[in-house]
Nucleic acid binder design. Sequence first.
DNA 1: GTCTATAAAAGGATAGAC
DNA 2: GTCTATCCTTTTATAGAC
Lengths: 201, 201
Amino acid sequence: MVCVNKDTRTRIVEAAMELFWLKGYGSTSIADILSRSQVNSGSLYYFFPGKQDVLVAVLEAYRDGIGPMLLEPAWSGVDDPVERVFALLASYRRALVETDCTYGCPIGSLALELHEPDPPVRELMAANFRAWVDAVEGCFAQARDRFPEETDLRALAELALNVMEGGVMQSRTFRDIGPFDRAVAQLRAHVDAISLRERAA
Amino acid sequence: MVCVNKDTRTRIVEAAMELFWLKGYGSTSIADILSRSQVNSGSLYYFFPGKQDVLVAVLEAYRDGIGPMLLEPAWSGVDDPVERVFALLASYRRALVETDCTYGCPIGSLALELHEPDPPVRELMAANFRAWVDAVEGCFAQARDRFPEETDLRALAELALNVMEGGVMQSRTFRDIGPFDRAVAQLRAHVDAISLRERAA
DNA sequence: GTCTATAAAAGGATAGAC
DNA sequence: GTCTATCCTTTTATAGAC
């Protein structure tokens, strides 16, 4: 990806996306965004009324990028729908390991950092979670016949999100990948336990 | 509890505890703490070198209060050890409902808000999670004979934490208690599924 | 231990030329 | 669309009397 000649707005959003992930929203200053994106104050305020509008753009970028930036890379080479769920979780594991258990899910961090988000911000965070759960539920739905009829696939997908977010939270706090791995193992055991028969090899 | 004549340090810590819960650490200013605790700047800096030291005191208070302030109220009138786990989760549900799904676990929020906490802060957040998981693991251990020998009770207790924290995160974001309830229901189903026989009525 | 006043810095946002 | 300079507010922290 060529990074030098992107348009200014894109550079701002990408810089903010990374900084919010690294430091959080409140701890990222406009000056941080300006210096990382190599943009001047006037240009930022030409495109965005204020800092919160940059956040909105970042959350829109995450929402729009969930397929191409998150799911497709995680699922490349993985065909089995249930394995795709665990491949997705493995991509969060990678992020944790690569950052020495410092950074996990950017949406989750923002969701707990911002205590009284304005409606557009909250709605976009919800849209991100919804899209994630939709995708995971879709995986389980493709394997519908492996689960008992009464299994609530939506609730199962939400459990996967909880396991991921909770695992990230604990691993970050303990600076240890162990809690994340045990969380995923618990989900695996649960999915196996409710599966009707073994998957085709 | 008499609140007027508590000593100054205690008033500061209690005010900060509430404010960090309501607004987060970064969004709570020293001025906020001073006005809520009715203390003057000079007094706060007499007791604490800076804002982060107030946070340390708050986290110590949570850690020391987990028994008397969290577990004992949640467990009053509940004798069955496994039901105590769900009674604890119900106390988080209460916090969510009473605040219109705005506030959940203060430790979880701090854990995701603070991206690069200084060692004493991170260690205290870890100590809080550890104490929570210890308590829940203790409940499961009291019902050891209800679970297969190979069941990892520690991992099960960690799952309970993940379910709580994930459920809080989603319910807060969607401003809807549904995700939290479904998360707890999934844990209940999992615990029931691995239980060897029905509990005594 | 507590009070008031204030220093010192950071941060969000704006103005106006180009 | 971009640039520099700067205003204004908030915030952390300190000084020094009492």
